[in-house]
Design a protein around this nucleic acid. Sequence first.
DNA 1: CACCAGGGTGGTT
DNA 2: AACCACCATGGT
Length: 217
Amino acid sequence: VIECNRVYDALLAEHGRQQWWPADERFEILVGALLVQRTAWRNVETAIVELKRRELLDAAILACTPVAVIEECVRRTGFFRAKASRLTKLARFVVAMGGLAALDAMPTATLRRLLLDLDGIGPETADAILLYAFDRPVVVVDTYLRRLARRLAGGDSELADTELRAWVGESIGETPALSELHALVVAHGKAFCRKEPLCNECPMQASCRSAVSVSDP
DNA sequence: CACCAGGGTGGTT
DNA sequence: AACCACCATGGT
């Protein structure tokens, strides 16, 4: 099958550098990762702005902020009751662990397990946090990557997450490239491949098919 | 009006 | 393990 490195180059050529994650501070990345779940990023931005305006975007402060106040800030991100509650738990976790600097010293696997134990943080959010807030070389597997890989494979069979991680990790191992790749995959998915089952308007389609047919006659 | 957005959780088969 | 309803608001 086609190498992920090729796909990365094609995506970069098509969409340009994305330079994720958009944030001023590291804790803002954790908050944004929670809030963006099943939500358009522009709605998250307004919530972040509101949290900043009220000077709440800090783990120690957010941990002591009444949940009702947090709900007001994040209402426009949807699922606001669950997300506000989860932000409180997240902030208290960071404080209890001794801050982000203390978490930096932990191995990736250990930190990932701790993140997954938190309410509202599943595999994708945990990996995005590891990649963008902790600079760990992690492959973020999302629905866009699954669709892209499935189409590149030319089939309808779904690849397992472990297969996807291997496919990406074998050709892309550095944090900066993995960061850019995830952002590019999302940008590409939003631009062309939103609907199943085709992406007829996708500029990559021709190169994808030729690359697949060449390596897999 | 229907459908989707940078998912995760809990319950049911 | 696979599947499902649910969470809730804002934009197209």
